[in-house]
Amino acid sequence: MKKSAFLGALAATTVIAGAAMAGTLDDVKARGELICGSNTGLTGFGTPDANGNWTGFDVDLCRALAAAIFGDPTKVKFIPTTGETRFTALQSGEVDVLIRNSTWTFSRDTELALDFVAVNYYDGQGFMVKKDLGVSSAKELDGATVCIQTGTTTELNLADFFKQNNISYQPVTVADDSEAQRQFLAGACDAYTTDASGLAASRATMPDGDQYIILPEIISKEPLGPVVRHGDNNWGDVVRWTFNALLIAEEKGVTKANVAEVAASSQDEEVKRLLGVSGDMGAKIGLPNEAFKNAIAAVGNYGEVFASNIGEGTAINLARGLNALWTQGGLQYAAPFR
């Protein structure tokens, strides 16, 4: 009797909690501010600068979202989350959306009751070695010492890769990226492995960057993307389509600079719907009709966001690779806007 009453109360609480969490978009609007879970500091993807202004590839997606909801990219608050706290912070409602280079995996999507609504960066695990090691493929790394961060999926991928290729390695475990870089430079390990984007950022800041090469093998799939709570589909749609809008904008050649002009003059029906000139696409998901126009005007299209934060020409100097549009041989493919 007592137990059933307790369970009933628990169920009721869960329902109330669920109901209160159901309308994230309404909560955000009522608060007047989007709360975005971000990294505690990752070069190029999300980090506060000397004055506390957040910049980066992931951060720009948060700003685009704020611009879509409020028409103002500054109405967003960034909460730094660590690898341990990120998913709980999202589940408990401390952040509205998590855009923090998190890999989309089966267990995170299902067991953690999260929804990965898009992939804004296709990453993969790679290797960096000294040029004079004379190695041109990761399969030649038999017997090598490898610097690897503990407690990450990269550690498991590494073990899998070497086992499958029947070669051996000596792991040198390190706590974080800066220690790994230090150990690698000091010669404590022959190869350094982490996500390819991280390798490129490290290489860009090494004293003799051209002494090191990144091997061609990418041994894992790391689709990174924005995450929302399971069960709030409308909010998931808002995040997904804000990201898709940036992709479509690149596809259609709409940029930060020409968005106003295109909105006034374009004859392309999809572009007109995207920018809120015709139809009521924004209104259908509870946003202002010019929501996506505002998002593009705030941060630019996907290509611009990529180029200004991590692309070729920046210090990190990443090629588009898998993140090129599908029309250019990449994987970034947005569903049609209709």
């Binding site: 990294n39 505690t40 500091g41 070069t43 980090t47 870089q181 950022a201």
Partner: peptide, 11 residues
């Protein structure tokens, strides 16, 4: 970590 995430001071 924040200072190190700045590309100028990374490393």
């Amino acid at each position: 970590q924040i200072v190190r995430a700045d590309i100028n001071w990374k490393g």
